[in-house]
Every structure is written in structure tokens, then in C-alpha cells.
């Protein structure tokens, strides 16, 4: 536990923070990306994430296995997603309003069922020490990489490939861009959207399980500080591209580590400003990367915000 890195502590902390903090953002934004590419918006992922965190923690505690918890969180998330997908297929249902209702429902149910699980200590998810080559403890700590993070990275590239190169991806994109065109070629848009929404929910559930089972690694009612909501915004920021979702999540995680890291190297005043860094950074990037006219160019055509 010794070794003074001086100012190098900041980039090391940001690297560690990017890996530790980004995973929930990554999973939720990948889930939302998939859902939105099929032409549906699910704003309820914050609730799905909170419920997934609770369900994952509870089942991990009861079963003694963190992976059972992850499975339970994914199943619960898929349930929420499928419910959203099922309700939204009815005529006249607004998916934005429905999403907000589901968000509140998920949070409420999680608080209700989660009460007995605030105190117990559930098993944590394992991590892989990629920092073994370094004898600097800070680097070793930063490179403790959780398996779910690696799954998330693989998933980002896999999803991008799937959307671009496979028949399934084509179906999702057709449904997302024009339900009429989809019907014309014999695809049932409702069914595709239902599955895409359920899969998106499952990913958000896993994001919750990461929060409660790995980092910070315990369930309580203040666990999610809006990760589910921010991740939905990240999808727009990432232009509905799964690989860009990965970079957006990493950037957000790294910026979040900036505040605490800067306080330890002596930038002690104005820490409220550093805590706002992720949001400022997002705004700045949005401004720099957008040109008037093409802001929503890559948005799926059936999305209710673009219609």
C-alpha cells in the first residue's frame, strides 16, 4: 500500500474509474440501444436497473452464488422489458409515458421487496487481476477487471456486428426504420419489438446486478444515482451505435473518477465543480460533435421522438 504516484495518480484513477464505474452505463446503454434500434423507447430502465440490483443481491444472498444473482437480475429485467413491449403494442399507448410509469414501479417494487436485504452481505462477483505485471499497487487495483465488464465490451462489438451483418440485425433495423416496410416483407414488427425490448430490459437488469454485486457491492435504496437515466441519454450521444456506447460509457466512468482523484492530489477547492465533470463533458462533446441539421440522422425512423 505504499508508493507515491504524485500527479500520475489522476490518470491511473481515471483508468480504474472508467473500468469500475462504466459497466452499469455500458449495459443499460447497450440495452437501450438495441430497444431503440427496433423503434421503441424504454425510459423505464432506471427502474429495471434498481429492481435488477435488488433481485440480484437477494438471490445471490439466498443461493450463495453471485452468478445466480446475475441470472435472476437478467430474468427480472427481461420481465420488465417484455411487459413494456407487450403494453406498448396496443394502439394509443405512449411508450415514453409507459416507460416513466415502469421506472417508478420498478423502483417502488425494489424498495418494497429489498427491505430485508439491506443488512445481509451477499457474495461478490469475481474479478480478474490484469494488473499482475505491475508492482505498483495503484495500477494493480485499477486493473482489477470484473468479468461483466469484459462481457459488456464483447457485447458492444458483437451487437454492432449483429446489427450490421446478420439477418436478425436487418430485421431489427427494418422494424426500427419503417414498420410498413417490415410488414411488406413479412416481418411482424410487434414481435421483433417485444423481443428487443425484453433483451434490453435483461441487459439493464444485469447492470443493476453489477452495482449491487460488484461495485459498490451492496444493496441499499440509494444505490442507483440515476445511472439508468444517464445511460438512456448516452444512447443518443452515441448515435445509436453500440461501439460508441462503449466509449461513451468509458468516458463517463473516467470523468466520474476525476472528482475524488483530484482531491487526493491537492485540488481541494471547488470539488462540486469536478463532480459535475461527467455532465459538462457530455454537453461539451455533444456541442462539438453536432452540426446543425444532421443531429438525428442516425436515429431509427420509427422512434417516437423522431416521428
Amino acid at each position: 500500500m505504499s508508493g507515491d504516484l504524485g500527479l500520475w495518480a489522476v490518470p491511473v484513477a481515471m483508468l480504474g474509474g472508467a473500468i469500475r464505474v462504466s459497466t452499469p452505463f455500458l449495459f443499460v446503454s447497450l440495452g437501450e440501444c438495441l430497444t431503440e434500434r427496433s423503434g421503441r423507447i424504454n425510459l423505464g430502465l432506471e427502474g429495471t436497473l434498481t429492481f435488477g440490483a435488488m433481485a440480484g443481491y437477494a438471490l445471490a444472498f439466498e443461493s450463495g452464488s453471485a452468478w445466480v444473482g446475475v441470472g435472476a437480475a437478467a430474468a427480472a429485467g427481461a420481465g420488465f422489458g417484455a411487459f413494456h413491449g407487450w403494453i406498448c403494442r396496443f394502439k394509443g399507448v405512449n411508450d415514453i409515458a409507459m416507460g416513466i410509469a415502469l421506472m417508478l414501479l420498478g423502483i417502488g417494487l425494489a424498495f418494497f421487496f429489498g427491505k430485508p436485504y439491506i443488512q445481509p452481505v451477499a457474495p461478490d462477483l469475481p474479478s480478474i487481476p490484469f494488473g499482475f505485471w505491475s508492482d505498483v499497487p495503484q495500477v494493480q487495483a485499477a486493473l482489477q477487471v470484473n468479468v461483466l465488464f469484459l462481457v459488456g465490451v464483447a457485447l458492444a462489438f458483437g451487437m454492432a456486428w449483429m446489427l450490421r451483418n446478420t439477418a436478425l440485425g436487418l430485421r431489427i433495423r427494418v422494424v426500427g426504420d419503417s414498420t410498413e416496410a417490415a410488414r411488406a416483407i413479412g416481418i411482424a414488427p410487434d414481435r421483433v419489438q417485444l423481443w428487443a425490448t425484453a433483451a434490453g430490459g435483461a441487459l439493464a437488469g444485469v447492470a443493476g446486478a453489477y452495482l449491487s454485486l460488484y461495485y459498490p457491492g451492496s444493496w441499499n435504496e440509494g444505490l442507483s444515482s440515476g445511472q439508468g437515466l444517464m445511460a438512456v441519454a448516452l444512447v443518443i450521444f452515441a448515435r445509436w451505435n453500440p461501439v460508441l456506447c462503449l466509449f461513451a460509457a468509458l468516458l463517463f466512468g473516467a470523468a466520474g473518477a476525476l472528482g475524488p482523484a483530484l482531491q487526493t492530489v491537492g485540488f481541494t477547492s471547488g470539488y462540486y465543480l469536478f463532480f459535475a465533470a461527467p455532465y459538462v463533458l457530455t454537453l461539451a462533446l455533444l456541442i462539438f460533435t453536432s452540426t446543425p441539421g444532421n443531429a438525428l440522422d442516425s436515429a431509427p425512423g420509427e422512434l417516437s421522438i423522431t416521428k
Partner: peptide, 12 residues
């Protein structure tokens, strides 16, 4: 009460 930030602060 801000779980992720408390964990980040502790790691820092």
C-alpha cells in the same frame, strides 16, 4: 448517501 461516489472516494 451516494454509494458509487463513496466507493470511488475510498479507492482514491
Amino acid at each position: 448517501s451516494l454509494a458509487v461516489k463513496e466507493a470511488e472516494a475510498t479507492n482514491a
